[in-house]
Write a protein that binds this DNA or RNA. Structure first.
Length: 322
DNA sequence: AAACTACACAACCGCAATGGT
DNA sequence: TACCATTGCGGTTGTGTAGTT
């Protein structure tokens, strides 16, 4: 039995909004304010679900929305912000985990909890009057196409920005160093989540036999009840997370990035990172795959297949230096 | 003029976070 | 603490329109 849908399918209008619906919604919000959207839609006499009302208001009816084409300045800002915030891959790696990874050099597997996201709302927040939806659409239609066109004519990446390439999908790909290519690291990707979500960081390191299994790709999580139970520390994602950008950043970083990081610092202060101790004993006592637990039924073969896809191919070439 | 294609953007969907009870 | 409704977000789809053949 699943959760009841937030928007009931029956009895509600869908599709394009009519002028009358717009008028009803706008006048109701003008009189009573935003919020309580499902209630609002009923009270306003709209046969729309609350989510639809909210979206219509935020993306179209709000009085402070800026109409018209994206200006050159706005476009440049979007591109810059997207480089900073867009389609990032975050990997949660505690310091101890990085040490463990370095010990696993030579093996085929590096497991990590990865997070993919693009903060359209953050980008929109820096463009007054523009909505996240608008910017997202603009990126997906105009800018991505342009990036593709540039890539096809072999435009070299700018040295002054990042040591990475923007691919068609907007995913940032690190340049391949000889070391990185040699390392052949495989990264286990988990489901995309938001940056504030909690992730699991290993507190212990794998026993030698499991390391061997990892190397041979034999460790299957279907039996993880027996083989993969163990201590898992939960910390806030941002605290245990290293943003890949930092691995190939432009050194000092832009003002925008610094500003963004400041914001994050404020946001994250409430959840100070728990230090994760690491020592040899932990390495010996490790009995679990660090990023798997009871509900994370993962099949390494399936994941390896996933990682062979273009979308995730860049993960194989990341060179994690401790 | 009709058919087809590309484009732009509004709207939907599913998921996760959050807050109230 | 668990449950549920609400809110917010990002990815995707649908659709109207302009341009091209």
């Amino acid at each position: 039995m699943g959760r009841s849908p937030s928007c009931p399918k029956e009895g509600l209008n869908k599709g394009a909004w009519t002028a009358l619906e717009d008028k009803l919604l706008a006048s109701y919000i003008k009189a009573h304010g935003e919020g309580k959207w499902s209630d609002l839609s009923r009270r306003a006499g709209l046969k729309r679900c609350g989510k639809s009302c909210r979206l219509r208001w935020l993306n179209y009816l709000r009085p402070d929305i800026k109409r018209g084409n994206i200006s050159r300045d706005e476009e440049e800002l979007i591109i810059r912000l997207h480089n900073l915030l867009g389609n990032r891959l975050l990997i949660s790696l505690s310091p101890s985990f990085l040490q463990w990874e370095s010990k696993l050099r030579g093996t085929e597997f590096l497991t990590a909890h990865c997070v993919r996201l693009c903060r359209w709302s953050l980008i929109a927040g820096r463009l007054p009057g523009r909505t996240d939806n608008e910017i997202k659409n603009y990126w997906n239609t105009v800018l991505r196409k342009r990036a593709k066109a540039q890539a096809s004519i072999g435009t070299p990446p700018s040295k002054s920005t990042h040591k990475m390439l923007s691919t068609e999908s907007g995913v940032c790909e690190p340049l391949r160093s000889p070391q990185a290519t040699k390392a052949k690291i495989k990264v286990i990707l988990t489901k995309a989540t938001r940056s504030s979500s909690k992730v699991r960081i290993p507190t212990q390191l794998p026993a030698a036999q499991h390391t061997d299994k990892l190397r041979d790709g034999q460790l299957n999580s279907t039996n993880n009840n027996q083989e993969m139970s163990g201590d898992i520390a939960t910390v806030e994602a941002h605290n245990g997370t290293q943003v890949l950008d930092s691995l190939y950043s432009d050194g000092g970083g832009s003002d925008l990035l610094n500003e963004q990081l400041k914001e994050r610092d404020v946001e994250f202060e409430e959840n100070p990172m728990q230090p994760l101790a690491f020592d040899e004993a932990m390495f010996k006592n490790w009995t679990v795959n660090p990023c798997l637990n009871g509900n994370d039924a993962m099949d390494f073969d399936s994941l390896a297949f996933l990682l062979e896809t273009d979308e995730y191919s860049f993960c194989r070439n990341i060179n994690f230096q401790t």
